[in-house]
Nucleic acid binder design. Structure first.
Length: 565
RNA sequence: UGGCGAGUAGUUCAACUGGCAGAACGCCUGGCUUUGGACCAGGAGGUUGCAGGUUCGAGCCCUGCCUCGCCAGCCA
Protein backbone atom coordinates (compact mmCIF):
# COMPACT_ATOMS: atom_id res chain seq x y z
CA UNK A 1 0.00 0.00 0.00
CA UNK A 2 1.43 3.34 -1.00
CA UNK A 3 0.82 6.73 0.48
CA UNK A 4 1.95 8.86 -2.38
CA UNK A 5 -0.60 11.36 -3.46
CA UNK A 6 -0.26 11.89 -7.16
CA UNK A 7 -1.27 15.50 -6.76
CA UNK A 8 2.17 15.78 -5.30
CA UNK A 9 0.80 17.20 -2.11
CA UNK A 10 2.38 15.05 0.44
CA UNK A 11 4.55 12.06 0.37
CA UNK A 12 4.34 10.47 3.80
CA UNK A 13 7.80 11.32 4.97
CA UNK A 14 7.22 14.91 3.94
CA UNK A 15 3.69 15.20 5.17
CA UNK A 16 3.64 17.48 8.08
CA UNK A 17 1.01 18.13 10.66
CA UNK A 18 1.17 18.71 14.37
CA UNK A 19 0.71 15.03 15.24
CA UNK A 20 3.40 13.81 12.89
CA UNK A 21 5.72 16.51 14.21
CA UNK A 22 4.99 15.31 17.70
CA UNK A 23 5.78 11.72 16.81
CA UNK A 24 8.97 12.75 15.06
CA UNK A 25 9.95 14.60 18.21
CA UNK A 26 9.13 11.60 20.39
CA UNK A 27 11.29 9.41 18.22
CA UNK A 28 14.13 11.91 18.46
CA UNK A 29 13.71 12.09 22.22
CA UNK A 30 13.36 8.34 22.62
CA UNK A 31 10.12 8.86 24.52
CA UNK A 32 8.67 5.47 23.61
CA UNK A 33 11.93 3.80 22.70
CA UNK A 34 11.31 4.82 19.07
CA UNK A 35 8.16 2.72 19.00
CA UNK A 36 4.92 3.97 17.42
CA UNK A 37 1.62 2.25 18.10
CA UNK A 38 -1.84 3.62 17.44
CA UNK A 39 -5.35 2.29 17.47
CA UNK A 40 -8.74 2.97 15.97
CA UNK A 41 -11.28 2.54 18.79
CA UNK A 42 -14.90 2.74 17.58
CA UNK A 43 -17.84 1.73 19.72
CA UNK A 44 -19.82 -1.07 18.05
CA UNK A 45 -23.13 0.71 18.31
CA UNK A 46 -23.44 2.10 14.80
CA UNK A 47 -21.97 2.19 11.33
CA UNK A 48 -18.77 3.91 10.31
CA UNK A 49 -18.97 7.10 8.27
CA UNK A 50 -16.48 9.23 6.39
CA UNK A 51 -15.58 11.07 9.59
CA UNK A 52 -14.36 7.78 10.97
CA UNK A 53 -12.42 7.27 7.75
CA UNK A 54 -10.36 10.35 8.57
CA UNK A 55 -9.45 8.86 11.93
CA UNK A 56 -8.78 5.44 10.40
CA UNK A 57 -6.43 6.92 7.82
CA UNK A 58 -4.66 9.02 10.39
CA UNK A 59 -4.09 6.14 12.80
CA UNK A 60 -3.15 3.47 10.27
CA UNK A 61 -1.08 5.75 8.04
CA UNK A 62 0.77 7.28 10.95
CA UNK A 63 1.79 3.90 12.30
CA UNK A 64 2.83 2.66 8.88
CA UNK A 65 4.85 5.78 8.11
CA UNK A 66 6.92 5.34 11.23
CA UNK A 67 7.26 1.58 11.01
CA UNK A 68 4.80 1.06 13.83
CA UNK A 69 1.55 -0.82 14.21
CA UNK A 70 -2.12 0.00 14.48
CA UNK A 71 -4.99 -2.08 15.77
CA UNK A 72 -8.73 -1.98 15.53
CA UNK A 73 -10.07 -2.02 19.06
CA UNK A 74 -13.78 -2.19 19.64
CA UNK A 75 -14.61 -0.04 22.61
CA UNK A 76 -17.36 -2.29 23.85
CA UNK A 77 -17.91 -1.10 27.42
CA UNK A 78 -21.64 -0.47 27.22
CA UNK A 79 -23.75 -3.57 26.46
CA UNK A 80 -26.93 -1.54 26.37
CA UNK A 81 -26.43 -0.36 22.79
CA UNK A 82 -23.60 -2.45 21.41
CA UNK A 83 -24.24 -5.35 19.06
CA UNK A 84 -22.17 -8.02 17.35
CA UNK A 85 -23.50 -7.11 13.91
CA UNK A 86 -22.12 -3.58 14.30
CA UNK A 87 -18.76 -5.07 15.16
CA UNK A 88 -18.84 -7.18 12.00
CA UNK A 89 -19.86 -4.19 9.89
CA UNK A 90 -17.00 -2.12 11.28
CA UNK A 91 -14.48 -4.81 10.43
CA UNK A 92 -15.93 -5.07 6.93
CA UNK A 93 -15.75 -1.31 6.33
CA UNK A 94 -12.16 -1.06 7.50
CA UNK A 95 -11.18 -3.93 5.24
CA UNK A 96 -12.96 -2.23 2.36
CA UNK A 97 -10.85 0.85 2.91
CA UNK A 98 -7.85 -1.43 2.61
CA UNK A 99 -6.56 -1.44 6.16
CA UNK A 100 -5.81 -4.38 8.38
CA UNK A 101 -5.62 -4.45 12.14
CA UNK A 102 -2.14 -5.56 13.11
CA UNK A 103 -3.19 -8.10 15.74
CA UNK A 104 -6.70 -8.85 14.55
CA UNK A 105 -9.66 -7.23 16.19
CA UNK A 106 -9.08 -6.26 19.81
CA UNK A 107 -11.81 -5.68 22.35
CA UNK A 108 -11.91 -3.48 25.42
CA UNK A 109 -14.09 -6.22 26.92
CA UNK A 110 -11.06 -8.51 26.91
CA UNK A 111 -9.59 -6.23 29.58
CA UNK A 112 -12.56 -6.29 31.94
CA UNK A 113 -10.67 -8.57 34.34
CA UNK A 114 -7.59 -6.36 34.48
CA UNK A 115 -9.74 -3.26 34.75
CA UNK A 116 -11.58 -4.78 37.69
CA UNK A 117 -8.31 -5.59 39.45
CA UNK A 118 -7.10 -2.06 38.93
CA UNK A 119 -10.34 -0.77 40.40
CA UNK A 120 -9.72 -2.74 43.57
CA UNK A 121 -6.19 -1.39 43.56
CA UNK A 122 -7.58 2.12 43.55
CA UNK A 123 -10.01 1.27 46.34
CA UNK A 124 -7.17 -0.14 48.42
CA UNK A 125 -5.23 3.06 47.88
CA UNK A 126 -8.21 5.07 49.12
CA UNK A 127 -8.69 6.53 45.66
CA UNK A 128 -12.09 5.08 44.84
CA UNK A 129 -15.34 4.57 46.66
CA UNK A 130 -18.78 3.11 46.20
CA UNK A 131 -21.45 5.78 46.05
CA UNK A 132 -25.05 4.92 46.94
CA UNK A 133 -26.48 8.17 45.54
CA UNK A 134 -28.67 7.96 42.48
CA UNK A 135 -27.70 9.47 39.14
CA UNK A 136 -29.73 12.63 39.59
CA UNK A 137 -28.20 13.34 42.97
CA UNK A 138 -24.69 12.72 41.78
CA UNK A 139 -25.30 15.06 38.89
CA UNK A 140 -26.77 17.76 41.09
CA UNK A 141 -23.95 17.52 43.61
CA UNK A 142 -21.29 17.75 40.94
CA UNK A 143 -21.75 21.54 41.11
CA UNK A 144 -21.43 23.82 38.14
CA UNK A 145 -18.83 25.80 36.25
CA UNK A 146 -19.02 28.47 38.89
CA UNK A 147 -19.62 26.36 42.00
CA UNK A 148 -17.65 23.47 43.47
CA UNK A 149 -19.33 20.12 43.94
CA UNK A 150 -20.64 18.70 47.19
CA UNK A 151 -18.97 15.57 48.51
CA UNK A 152 -21.04 12.44 48.63
CA UNK A 153 -21.91 11.28 52.16
CA UNK A 154 -20.36 7.96 51.12
CA UNK A 155 -17.07 9.49 50.05
CA UNK A 156 -15.23 8.51 53.23
CA UNK A 157 -16.24 4.88 53.52
CA UNK A 158 -13.59 2.51 54.74
CA UNK A 159 -11.52 0.53 52.30
CA UNK A 160 -13.04 -2.69 53.60
CA UNK A 161 -16.59 -1.48 53.17
CA UNK A 162 -15.84 -0.19 49.66
CA UNK A 163 -14.28 -3.50 48.73
CA UNK A 164 -17.25 -5.45 50.04
CA UNK A 165 -19.77 -3.25 48.28
CA UNK A 166 -17.86 -3.22 45.01
CA UNK A 167 -17.67 -7.00 45.07
CA UNK A 168 -21.39 -7.14 45.72
CA UNK A 169 -21.95 -4.84 42.77
CA UNK A 170 -19.94 -7.17 40.59
CA UNK A 171 -21.76 -10.19 41.98
CA UNK A 172 -25.08 -8.81 40.89
CA UNK A 173 -26.46 -8.02 44.34
CA UNK A 174 -27.77 -4.63 43.25
CA UNK A 175 -30.10 -3.29 40.65
CA UNK A 176 -28.93 -0.99 37.89
CA UNK A 177 -28.43 2.53 39.17
CA UNK A 178 -28.32 1.55 42.80
CA UNK A 179 -24.61 2.09 43.25
CA UNK A 180 -21.56 3.19 41.29
CA UNK A 181 -17.84 3.12 41.88
CA UNK A 182 -16.29 6.57 41.77
CA UNK A 183 -12.72 7.81 41.74
CA UNK A 184 -11.85 9.97 44.73
CA UNK A 185 -10.16 12.95 43.16
CA UNK A 186 -11.38 16.48 43.85
CA UNK A 187 -14.97 17.66 44.11
CA UNK A 188 -13.86 21.27 43.70
CA UNK A 189 -11.70 20.71 40.63
CA UNK A 190 -12.15 23.35 37.95
CA UNK A 191 -12.37 20.54 35.41
CA UNK A 192 -15.74 18.96 36.09
CA UNK A 193 -14.51 15.61 34.81
CA UNK A 194 -12.16 15.44 37.78
CA UNK A 195 -15.01 15.78 40.32
CA UNK A 196 -15.00 12.13 41.32
CA UNK A 197 -15.86 10.57 37.96
CA UNK A 198 -17.81 7.33 37.77
CA UNK A 199 -15.66 4.26 37.05
CA UNK A 200 -18.24 1.49 37.13
CA UNK A 201 -21.97 1.35 36.71
CA UNK A 202 -24.32 -1.59 37.05
CA UNK A 203 -25.87 -2.93 33.86
CA UNK A 204 -27.88 -6.11 33.69
CA UNK A 205 -27.54 -6.71 29.98
CA UNK A 206 -26.11 -9.46 27.83
CA UNK A 207 -22.79 -8.27 26.48
CA UNK A 208 -22.10 -9.29 22.88
CA UNK A 209 -18.89 -11.01 23.95
CA UNK A 210 -18.88 -11.59 27.67
CA UNK A 211 -22.54 -12.54 27.92
CA UNK A 212 -23.76 -12.37 31.50
CA UNK A 213 -20.36 -12.70 33.13
CA UNK A 214 -20.32 -9.08 34.20
CA UNK A 215 -22.95 -6.79 35.56
CA UNK A 216 -20.59 -3.93 36.29
CA UNK A 217 -19.20 -2.16 33.25
CA UNK A 218 -16.35 0.35 33.09
CA UNK A 219 -17.04 3.83 31.80
CA UNK A 220 -15.18 5.24 28.81
CA UNK A 221 -12.74 7.17 30.98
CA UNK A 222 -11.90 4.21 33.16
CA UNK A 223 -11.47 1.85 30.23
CA UNK A 224 -9.85 3.82 27.48
CA UNK A 225 -6.42 4.83 28.72
CA UNK A 226 -5.90 1.55 30.46
CA UNK A 227 -6.81 -0.36 27.32
CA UNK A 228 -4.25 1.73 25.46
CA UNK A 229 -1.66 0.93 28.10
CA UNK A 230 -2.40 -2.78 28.08
CA UNK A 231 -1.95 -2.94 24.33
CA UNK A 232 1.22 -0.86 24.33
CA UNK A 233 -0.29 2.05 22.46
CA UNK A 234 2.09 5.01 22.37
CA UNK A 235 -0.12 7.63 20.74
CA UNK A 236 -3.78 7.64 21.59
CA UNK A 237 -5.37 9.90 19.04
CA UNK A 238 -8.90 11.11 19.56
CA UNK A 239 -11.15 14.01 18.64
CA UNK A 240 -11.19 17.46 20.19
CA UNK A 241 -14.10 16.92 22.55
CA UNK A 242 -11.89 14.58 24.58
CA UNK A 243 -9.46 17.37 25.28
CA UNK A 244 -10.98 17.91 28.71
CA UNK A 245 -10.63 14.19 29.45
CA UNK A 246 -6.86 14.21 29.07
CA UNK A 247 -6.11 15.15 32.70
CA UNK A 248 -8.27 12.24 33.78
CA UNK A 249 -6.68 9.92 31.24
CA UNK A 250 -3.30 10.80 32.73
CA UNK A 251 -4.50 10.69 36.34
CA UNK A 252 -5.70 7.09 36.10
CA UNK A 253 -2.57 5.92 34.38
CA UNK A 254 -0.39 7.72 36.93
CA UNK A 255 -2.11 5.94 39.81
CA UNK A 256 -1.85 2.40 38.47
CA UNK A 257 0.96 -0.09 38.00
CA UNK A 258 1.31 0.02 34.24
CA UNK A 259 2.92 -2.72 32.20
CA UNK A 260 4.86 -0.13 30.18
CA UNK A 261 5.11 3.52 29.22
CA UNK A 262 2.15 5.78 29.77
CA UNK A 263 0.47 6.33 26.40
CA UNK A 264 -0.04 9.88 25.28
CA UNK A 265 -3.41 11.24 24.25
CA UNK A 266 -3.53 13.80 21.45
CA UNK A 267 -6.67 15.39 20.09
CA UNK A 268 -7.45 16.56 16.56
CA UNK A 269 -10.48 18.14 14.90
CA UNK A 270 -13.11 15.77 13.61
CA UNK A 271 -14.23 15.96 10.01
CA UNK A 272 -17.30 17.92 8.95
CA UNK A 273 -18.59 18.14 5.39
CA UNK A 274 -20.99 20.64 3.87
CA UNK A 275 -24.54 19.62 2.94
CA UNK A 276 -24.48 16.55 5.13
CA UNK A 277 -24.41 15.51 8.77
CA UNK A 278 -21.98 13.20 10.51
CA UNK A 279 -23.39 12.87 13.97
CA UNK A 280 -24.56 9.44 14.98
CA UNK A 281 -27.78 10.92 16.34
CA UNK A 282 -28.77 12.70 13.13
CA UNK A 283 -27.74 9.82 10.91
CA UNK A 284 -29.92 7.55 13.00
CA UNK A 285 -32.78 10.01 12.75
CA UNK A 286 -32.52 9.97 8.95
CA UNK A 287 -32.85 6.20 9.01
CA UNK A 288 -35.47 5.90 11.75
CA UNK A 289 -37.78 8.54 10.32
CA UNK A 290 -37.50 7.04 6.87
CA UNK A 291 -35.89 10.01 5.15
CA UNK A 292 -33.44 7.55 3.65
CA UNK A 293 -33.76 3.88 2.89
CA UNK A 294 -31.22 2.71 5.43
CA UNK A 295 -27.65 3.00 6.64
CA UNK A 296 -26.44 2.02 3.18
CA UNK A 297 -28.61 4.46 1.28
CA UNK A 298 -26.29 5.92 -1.38
CA UNK A 299 -26.97 9.41 -0.06
CA UNK A 300 -25.65 8.55 3.38
CA UNK A 301 -22.11 9.59 4.34
CA UNK A 302 -21.64 6.16 5.90
CA UNK A 303 -18.93 4.02 4.36
CA UNK A 304 -21.65 1.54 3.38
CA UNK A 305 -23.61 4.30 1.69
CA UNK A 306 -20.58 5.66 -0.13
CA UNK A 307 -19.70 2.14 -1.22
CA UNK A 308 -23.12 1.60 -2.78
CA UNK A 309 -22.87 5.03 -4.30
CA UNK A 310 -19.67 3.96 -6.05
CA UNK A 311 -17.06 6.01 -4.20
CA UNK A 312 -13.72 4.23 -4.58
CA UNK A 313 -11.99 3.64 -1.24
CA UNK A 314 -8.80 5.09 -2.67
CA UNK A 315 -10.59 8.37 -3.35
CA UNK A 316 -11.90 8.47 0.20
CA UNK A 317 -8.41 7.88 1.55
CA UNK A 318 -6.84 10.49 -0.72
CA UNK A 319 -9.46 12.93 0.49
CA UNK A 320 -8.85 12.15 4.15
CA UNK A 321 -5.13 12.55 3.70
CA UNK A 322 -5.61 15.78 1.83
CA UNK A 323 -7.75 17.49 4.45
CA UNK A 324 -5.00 16.92 6.94
CA UNK A 325 -5.16 17.08 10.69
CA UNK A 326 -5.33 20.15 12.84
CA UNK A 327 -6.94 21.41 15.99
CA UNK A 328 -9.27 23.82 14.23
CA UNK A 329 -12.92 22.91 13.98
CA UNK A 330 -14.05 23.32 10.40
CA UNK A 331 -16.21 22.07 7.59
CA UNK A 332 -14.80 20.81 4.32
CA UNK A 333 -16.72 21.57 1.16
CA UNK A 334 -18.28 18.45 -0.30
CA UNK A 335 -16.93 19.55 -3.69
CA UNK A 336 -13.46 18.63 -2.52
CA UNK A 337 -14.55 15.06 -1.79
CA UNK A 338 -16.28 14.88 -5.16
CA UNK A 339 -13.20 16.10 -6.96
CA UNK A 340 -11.18 13.23 -5.50
CA UNK A 341 -13.88 10.80 -6.60
CA UNK A 342 -13.93 12.17 -10.15
CA UNK A 343 -10.19 12.19 -10.34
CA UNK A 344 -9.98 8.50 -9.48
CA UNK A 345 -12.93 7.42 -11.59
CA UNK A 346 -11.77 9.39 -14.62
CA UNK A 347 -8.60 7.34 -14.57
CA UNK A 348 -10.15 3.97 -13.96
CA UNK A 349 -13.70 3.72 -15.21
CA UNK A 350 -14.85 2.37 -18.56
CA UNK A 351 -16.97 4.63 -20.77
CA UNK A 352 -20.41 3.65 -21.94
CA UNK A 353 -23.30 5.47 -23.53
CA UNK A 354 -26.56 5.72 -21.67
CA UNK A 355 -29.57 7.90 -22.38
CA UNK A 356 -31.38 8.87 -19.22
CA UNK A 357 -34.39 10.71 -20.67
CA UNK A 358 -34.77 9.27 -24.16
CA UNK A 359 -35.88 11.32 -27.12
CA UNK A 360 -36.28 9.32 -30.38
CA UNK A 361 -34.17 10.46 -33.28
CA UNK A 362 -34.84 9.27 -36.83
CA UNK A 363 -32.12 9.48 -39.48
CA UNK A 364 -34.17 9.84 -42.60
CA UNK A 365 -31.43 9.14 -45.08
CA UNK A 366 -29.95 6.13 -43.30
CA UNK A 367 -30.61 2.94 -45.33
CA UNK A 368 -33.68 1.35 -43.86
CA UNK A 369 -33.00 -1.88 -42.02
CA UNK A 370 -29.21 -1.39 -42.08
CA UNK A 371 -27.17 -1.80 -38.91
CA UNK A 372 -23.45 -1.19 -38.60
CA UNK A 373 -21.04 -1.67 -35.73
CA UNK A 374 -19.12 1.39 -34.63
CA UNK A 375 -15.88 1.17 -32.71
CA UNK A 376 -15.85 3.14 -29.47
CA UNK A 377 -12.97 3.83 -27.09
CA UNK A 378 -13.45 2.31 -23.65
CA UNK A 379 -11.38 4.86 -21.76
CA UNK A 380 -9.49 7.68 -23.44
CA UNK A 381 -7.40 8.03 -20.28
CA UNK A 382 -6.25 4.42 -20.47
CA UNK A 383 -5.00 3.03 -23.80
CA UNK A 384 -5.02 -0.49 -22.36
CA UNK A 385 -8.79 -0.33 -21.83
CA UNK A 386 -9.26 -0.99 -25.56
CA UNK A 387 -12.36 -0.50 -27.66
CA UNK A 388 -15.80 -2.00 -28.10
CA UNK A 389 -18.42 -2.29 -30.84
CA UNK A 390 -21.58 -0.22 -30.64
CA UNK A 391 -24.52 -0.91 -32.97
CA UNK A 392 -25.67 2.08 -35.02
CA UNK A 393 -28.73 2.41 -37.22
CA UNK A 394 -31.37 4.88 -38.35
CA UNK A 395 -33.45 4.91 -35.19
CA UNK A 396 -31.70 6.19 -32.12
CA UNK A 397 -32.39 7.69 -28.73
CA UNK A 398 -30.68 10.87 -27.66
CA UNK A 399 -30.91 12.79 -24.41
CA UNK A 400 -33.98 15.01 -24.21
CA UNK A 401 -31.79 17.76 -22.71
CA UNK A 402 -29.61 17.67 -25.81
CA UNK A 403 -32.29 19.13 -28.06
CA UNK A 404 -34.06 22.47 -28.02
CA UNK A 405 -36.51 23.89 -30.48
CA UNK A 406 -35.43 27.41 -29.73
CA UNK A 407 -31.90 27.23 -28.45
CA UNK A 408 -30.74 30.10 -26.24
CA UNK A 409 -27.27 31.50 -26.72
CA UNK A 410 -24.43 29.21 -25.66
CA UNK A 411 -26.59 26.13 -26.18
CA UNK A 412 -24.37 24.18 -28.55
CA UNK A 413 -26.39 21.00 -28.84
CA UNK A 414 -28.98 19.89 -31.35
CA UNK A 415 -31.60 22.31 -32.69
CA UNK A 416 -33.50 22.69 -35.97
CA UNK A 417 -31.09 23.12 -38.85
CA UNK A 418 -28.07 22.52 -36.66
CA UNK A 419 -25.40 19.86 -37.15
CA UNK A 420 -23.84 17.94 -34.25
CA UNK A 421 -21.55 14.96 -33.95
CA UNK A 422 -22.78 11.68 -32.57
CA UNK A 423 -20.07 10.23 -30.38
CA UNK A 424 -18.33 7.38 -32.19
CA UNK A 425 -20.91 7.81 -34.99
CA UNK A 426 -21.60 10.39 -37.68
CA UNK A 427 -22.55 14.02 -37.98
CA UNK A 428 -26.30 14.56 -38.07
CA UNK A 429 -28.28 17.66 -38.97
CA UNK A 430 -31.74 18.28 -37.59
CA UNK A 431 -34.27 18.57 -40.39
CA UNK A 432 -37.46 18.72 -38.35
CA UNK A 433 -39.42 17.48 -35.38
CA UNK A 434 -42.56 15.47 -34.81
CA UNK A 435 -44.79 16.99 -32.18
CA UNK A 436 -47.04 14.96 -29.93
CA UNK A 437 -50.68 15.78 -29.28
CA UNK A 438 -49.78 17.45 -26.00
CA UNK A 439 -47.30 19.72 -27.71
CA UNK A 440 -44.17 17.96 -26.52
CA UNK A 441 -41.53 16.87 -28.94
CA UNK A 442 -42.13 13.23 -29.86
CA UNK A 443 -39.24 12.73 -32.25
CA UNK A 444 -36.39 14.55 -33.90
CA UNK A 445 -35.73 14.05 -37.60
CA UNK A 446 -32.21 14.27 -38.97
CA UNK A 447 -30.09 13.55 -41.96
CA UNK A 448 -26.61 12.15 -41.54
CA UNK A 449 -23.43 12.68 -43.49
CA UNK A 450 -21.95 9.29 -44.44
CA UNK A 451 -18.55 10.92 -44.97
CA UNK A 452 -18.14 11.80 -41.28
CA UNK A 453 -17.72 8.26 -39.96
CA UNK A 454 -14.15 9.04 -38.95
CA UNK A 455 -15.46 11.68 -36.63
CA UNK A 456 -14.14 14.35 -38.99
CA UNK A 457 -15.74 16.00 -41.98
CA UNK A 458 -13.73 15.99 -45.22
CA UNK A 459 -14.27 19.74 -45.54
CA UNK A 460 -13.16 20.40 -41.98
CA UNK A 461 -16.57 21.28 -40.54
CA UNK A 462 -16.49 21.10 -36.77
CA UNK A 463 -19.75 20.79 -34.87
CA UNK A 464 -19.74 22.56 -31.53
CA UNK A 465 -21.28 19.61 -29.74
CA UNK A 466 -20.91 15.85 -29.58
CA UNK A 467 -23.92 13.89 -28.34
CA UNK A 468 -24.23 10.46 -26.81
CA UNK A 469 -26.87 8.13 -28.24
CA UNK A 470 -28.19 4.59 -28.19
CA UNK A 471 -29.66 2.47 -31.00
CA UNK A 472 -33.36 2.05 -30.22
CA UNK A 473 -33.47 -1.50 -31.52
CA UNK A 474 -30.42 -2.62 -29.54
CA UNK A 475 -30.98 -0.62 -26.38
CA UNK A 476 -31.07 -2.29 -23.01
CA UNK A 477 -33.83 -0.91 -20.82
CA UNK A 478 -32.70 0.14 -17.39
CA UNK A 479 -33.14 2.40 -14.44
CA UNK A 480 -30.97 5.12 -13.06
CA UNK A 481 -31.11 6.92 -9.75
CA UNK A 482 -29.79 10.45 -9.45
CA UNK A 483 -28.64 11.69 -6.08
CA UNK A 484 -28.30 15.24 -4.87
CA UNK A 485 -27.13 16.65 -1.57
CA UNK A 486 -28.96 15.34 1.46
CA UNK A 487 -29.33 18.82 2.90
CA UNK A 488 -29.97 22.07 1.10
CA UNK A 489 -28.00 24.14 3.63
CA UNK A 490 -24.24 23.95 3.53
CA UNK A 491 -24.25 23.77 7.34
CA UNK A 492 -27.47 21.98 8.37
CA UNK A 493 -28.45 22.98 11.87
CA UNK A 494 -26.30 26.10 11.96
CA UNK A 495 -27.48 28.93 14.20
CA UNK A 496 -29.60 26.61 16.27
CA UNK A 497 -31.87 25.58 13.38
CA UNK A 498 -33.26 22.07 13.18
CA UNK A 499 -31.04 20.29 10.68
CA UNK A 500 -34.05 18.40 9.34
CA UNK A 501 -35.59 21.68 8.20
CA UNK A 502 -33.03 21.74 5.45
CA UNK A 503 -33.38 18.07 4.46
CA UNK A 504 -33.59 17.91 0.68
CA UNK A 505 -36.56 15.73 -0.35
CA UNK A 506 -35.36 15.95 -3.96
CA UNK A 507 -32.09 14.31 -2.99
CA UNK A 508 -33.13 11.22 -4.91
CA UNK A 509 -34.65 11.05 -8.37
CA UNK A 510 -35.60 7.79 -10.09
CA UNK A 511 -35.44 7.57 -13.88
CA UNK A 512 -37.29 4.49 -15.03
CA UNK A 513 -36.86 4.69 -18.78
CA UNK A 514 -33.13 4.79 -19.28
CA UNK A 515 -31.65 3.23 -22.43
CA UNK A 516 -28.22 1.64 -22.37
CA UNK A 517 -25.92 0.58 -25.16
CA UNK A 518 -25.55 -3.17 -25.60
CA UNK A 519 -22.06 -3.33 -24.06
CA UNK A 520 -23.49 -2.24 -20.73
CA UNK A 521 -23.99 -5.97 -20.26
CA UNK A 522 -20.23 -6.24 -19.61
CA UNK A 523 -20.46 -4.13 -16.48
CA UNK A 524 -20.21 -6.23 -13.34
CA UNK A 525 -22.38 -5.74 -10.28
CA UNK A 526 -20.88 -3.02 -8.14
CA UNK A 527 -18.69 -1.73 -10.97
CA UNK A 528 -18.56 2.00 -11.66
CA UNK A 529 -18.68 3.26 -15.25
CA UNK A 530 -18.74 6.65 -16.84
CA UNK A 531 -21.88 7.36 -18.82
CA UNK A 532 -20.33 9.63 -21.39
CA UNK A 533 -21.09 13.31 -20.87
CA UNK A 534 -23.21 12.55 -17.81
CA UNK A 535 -21.16 11.25 -14.94
CA UNK A 536 -20.06 8.18 -13.07
CA UNK A 537 -22.61 5.52 -12.24
CA UNK A 538 -22.36 2.44 -10.05
CA UNK A 539 -24.05 -0.76 -11.14
CA UNK A 540 -26.27 -1.96 -8.31
CA UNK A 541 -24.75 -5.03 -6.66
CA UNK A 542 -28.07 -6.90 -6.78
CA UNK A 543 -30.29 -5.54 -9.53
CA UNK A 544 -29.02 -5.76 -13.10
CA UNK A 545 -29.30 -2.65 -15.29
CA UNK A 546 -29.92 -0.49 -12.27
CA UNK A 547 -27.39 2.28 -11.77
CA UNK A 548 -26.71 4.79 -9.02
CA UNK A 549 -25.14 8.08 -9.92
CA UNK A 550 -21.89 8.33 -8.02
CA UNK A 551 -21.13 11.88 -9.08
CA UNK A 552 -21.82 13.93 -12.17
CA UNK A 553 -19.21 15.19 -14.58
CA UNK A 554 -18.33 18.86 -14.40
CA UNK A 555 -21.01 20.46 -16.53
CA UNK A 556 -20.31 23.78 -18.22
CA UNK A 557 -23.81 24.13 -19.68
CA UNK A 558 -25.42 23.44 -16.31
CA UNK A 559 -23.22 26.11 -14.81
CA UNK A 560 -24.24 28.64 -17.44
CA UNK A 561 -27.88 27.87 -16.77
CA UNK A 562 -27.37 28.16 -13.04
CA UNK A 563 -25.72 31.53 -13.47
CA UNK A 564 -28.68 32.69 -15.49
CA UNK A 565 -30.97 31.51 -12.73
C1' U B 1 -20.65 32.27 35.36
C1' G B 2 -15.20 29.02 35.65
C1' G B 3 -11.77 25.97 32.84
C1' C B 4 -9.65 24.34 28.32
C1' G B 5 -8.94 24.78 23.08
C1' A B 6 -8.91 27.51 18.44
C1' G B 7 -8.76 32.00 14.95
C1' U B 8 -4.07 32.66 7.90
C1' A B 9 -7.98 33.43 0.46
C1' G B 10 -15.03 31.15 -0.26
C1' U B 11 -13.31 26.04 1.99
C1' U B 12 -9.44 22.74 3.96
C1' C B 13 -4.50 23.34 5.09
C1' A B 14 1.05 25.25 4.42
C1' A B 15 4.75 29.01 5.72
C1' C B 16 12.36 25.45 9.50
C1' U B 17 14.73 28.53 15.10
C1' G B 18 10.99 36.21 13.49
C1' G B 19 12.93 37.46 6.88
C1' C B 20 8.80 39.27 0.01
C1' A B 21 1.97 35.12 3.03
C1' G B 22 1.62 29.74 -0.66
C1' A B 23 -1.08 25.02 -2.37
C1' A B 24 -5.36 22.20 -3.29
C1' C B 25 -10.64 22.39 -4.14
C1' G B 26 -14.10 26.13 -5.76
C1' C B 27 -14.67 30.57 -9.05
C1' C B 28 -13.30 33.43 -13.72
C1' U B 29 -10.37 33.82 -18.77
C1' G B 30 -8.14 31.53 -22.73
C1' G B 31 -6.13 27.06 -25.27
C1' C B 32 -6.87 22.02 -26.75
C1' U B 33 -10.40 18.17 -27.60
C1' U B 34 -14.85 12.81 -31.34
C1' U B 35 -17.23 13.71 -23.62
C1' G B 36 -19.39 21.62 -22.72
C1' G B 37 -15.40 15.75 -19.48
C1' A B 38 -10.17 15.16 -18.94
C1' C B 39 -5.84 17.99 -19.89
C1' C B 40 -2.76 22.76 -20.52
C1' A B 41 -1.94 28.06 -19.56
C1' G B 42 -3.37 32.31 -17.01
C1' G B 43 -6.42 35.30 -13.50
C1' A B 44 -9.33 37.16 -9.44
C1' G B 45 -9.53 36.37 -4.38
C1' G B 46 -5.72 38.21 2.22
C1' U B 47 -5.61 44.71 6.80
C1' U B 48 -2.97 36.55 8.85
C1' G B 49 -9.93 38.02 14.41
C1' C B 50 -9.06 43.34 16.69
C1' A B 51 -5.90 47.03 19.29
C1' G B 52 -1.38 48.14 21.23
C1' G B 53 3.90 46.80 22.23
C1' U B 54 9.10 44.64 21.30
C1' U B 55 12.22 44.52 16.74
C1' C B 56 15.83 46.96 11.15
C1' G B 57 11.81 43.48 10.26
C1' A B 58 5.93 40.12 13.38
C1' G B 59 1.21 35.24 10.72
C1' C B 60 5.16 33.76 14.29
C1' C B 61 7.34 37.04 20.44
C1' C B 62 4.65 40.21 24.65
C1' U B 63 -0.02 42.65 26.69
C1' G B 64 -5.17 43.53 26.45
C1' C B 65 -9.62 42.53 24.01
C1' C B 66 -13.22 40.03 20.48
C1' U B 67 -15.36 35.74 18.31
C1' C B 68 -16.14 30.57 17.94
C1' G B 69 -15.89 25.45 19.90
C1' C B 70 -15.82 21.89 24.01
C1' C B 71 -16.85 20.60 29.34
C1' A B 72 -21.94 20.13 34.68
C1' G B 73 -24.26 11.25 31.19
C1' C B 74 -24.05 5.87 35.53
C1' C B 75 -22.75 7.78 26.42
C1' A B 76 -18.31 7.25 23.72
Amino acid sequence: MGFADSRGLSRPSERSDFIRSLVRQEIADGTFAKRVQTRFPPEPNGYLHIGHAKSICLNFDLAAEFGGICNLRLDDTNPETERAHFAAAIEEDIAWLGYESHSGTLYASDYFGQLYEWAEQLINAGLAYVDDQDAATISKNRGSFSEPGISSPFRDRSVAENLTLFRQMAAGDFAAGERVLRARIDMAHENMLMRDPVLYRIRHYDHHRTGTKWCVYPTYDWAHGQSDAIEGVTNSICTLEFDAHRPLYDWFLDHLDLPGDRPRQTEFARLNITHTVLSKRLLMQLVDEGHVEGWDDPRMPTLRGLRRRGFPPSAIKDFCRHVGVARVDGTVEVELLESFVRRELNRTSLRRMAVLNPLPLLIENYPSGQVEMREAVNNPEDPFAGTRQVPFDGELFIERDDFMLEPPSKFYRLAPGREVRLRSGYFVTCTGVDTAADGTIARVRCSYDPDTGSGQAPDGRRPKATLHWVSAKHAIDGQVVLYERLFADSHPGADGADPMDSFNPASVQHLENAKFEAAMADIAPGQVVQFERLGYFAHDPITTNFFHRTVGLRDEWARIQKRRG
